[in-house]
Simulated scan of single mutants.
Amino acid sequence: MFSSPLADAPAIREPRHVPVAHVTRGGVVEGTHHGSVVVLGRDGGVRFQLGDIEAACYPRSALKPVQAVAMVRAGLPLDGELLSLAMGSHSGEERHLAGARRILDLAGLAEDDLRNVPDLPYDPAVRDTWVREGRPPSRLAQNCSGKHAAMLYLCKLNGWPPADYDDPTHPLQRVIAATVEELTGQRIAHVTVDGCGTPLFAVSLHGLARAAARIATGARGTPESRVAGALRAHPEMASGAGRDVAALMHAVPGLLAKDGFEGVQIAALPDGRAVAVKIADGANRARVPVAAAGLALAGVDPRLLTGFAGEPATGGGRPVGGVRPVAALDPSALLAPA
């Protein structure tokens, strides 16, 4: 654990985002994605920043590794693929549904005990198959079901009431809030409700990057190390087949990465280097290329990141442009050694 005093909560304001990616077509900028980026060095200091990294923002599902650390500290005995699923925003594949059922079975509970919202699978192909088969929305299919199942399991183990585990005043959520503040190093600015129904905590992008770095550098045997190890070893259980966040972890040895709705991405290396990205308009197409550019600024070999440069813009079936990070995110913009 970290004993440093907590910084004040970040300011709640309209973030001062700046351009972070351009959409080009035929050499002309056709569109611009605004956002903010922070890159931390091995010592935890800010090596690069763009935009507003100190305003309060919602990490969305990028906070799930922090929630998982809190649950492991409180006694959650999961490891491996089930722990990865517990911090997942999964695609709704059968392996994800089966994993959530396994966690519920361990708790002696059933799908109806979950308090997340019923939904169709997140992955378009899986969702289309689901609809063709006439299957209705399901709590297990909703992308946060692994997290909810793990929360129920932990409540059962600790004797906490399971019926309102998603209430911000519940013992489980108080434990999670305390861990969010400890790992981000700052007080929570605001609490609201995430899409799945659990509490969502507003922190700064800088604090989110700091939390990612602390998890990625956790000493062997600590809850942080268990969470990082599970995510690194089983990235598809936290996402799904073909998902960009899993591909990024496969491409960069030792990388811990997690995405979140509304254009949030974290990525951290075992030596403490970390990146956090927020795309202002929530665009997925800008999230990964900007995060990859941040990793290059952190010193990751750009050759490992060539597959994450951004989707092409096509004309007549041919590539004529694409999504590209702004010039300020070129590694040459960072003058100090990694």
Rank of each mutant, 00 (worst) to 15 (best):
V131A: 14
A178S: 14
P162I: 15
G316T: 10
I266Y: 00
A292L: 00
L183Y: 08
V37N: 01
G197I: 06
V175M: 13
P137C: 12
A267H: 03
M87Q: 14
P331W: 02
T129Q: 14
R13D: 08
Q49W: 07
N284V: 11
A291T: 15
R226H: 10
A298I: 00
A150Q: 08
A68P: 04
V117P: 00
E81R: 15
A286V: 02
H206C: 04
L109E: 07
S145Y: 09
G26F: 10
Q265V: 08
L82A: 08
Y122H: 15
P136L: 11
E182I: 04
P235I: 00
G45L: 09
T169Q: 13
K64V: 11
A283K: 04
R318A: 14
G195I: 06
D330N: 13
R324N: 07
A100T: 04
S3E: 15
L335W: 12
P253L: 11
L154Y: 07
M151Y: 07
H170Q: 11
S3T: 14
E14K: 13
V323Y: 05
R25F: 04
W130Y: 13
E133I: 02
A251R: 03
R243H: 12
T32W: 00
G316R: 11
R220H: 15
L255S: 05
A149L: 08
S4A: 15
V326H: 06
D105A: 15
G307M: 04
T184C: 15
A327F: 10
I215G: 03
A333W: 12
A216S: 08
L205K: 05
G322C: 11
L305T: 00
L295M: 02
V29G: 07
L152N: 13
A202Y: 08
V300S: 01
G27A: 12
A62C: 03
T198C: 13
Q142G: 05
G92Y: 08
F308N: 01
N158Q: 15
V20M: 09
C196G: 05
I279M: 03
A9P: 03
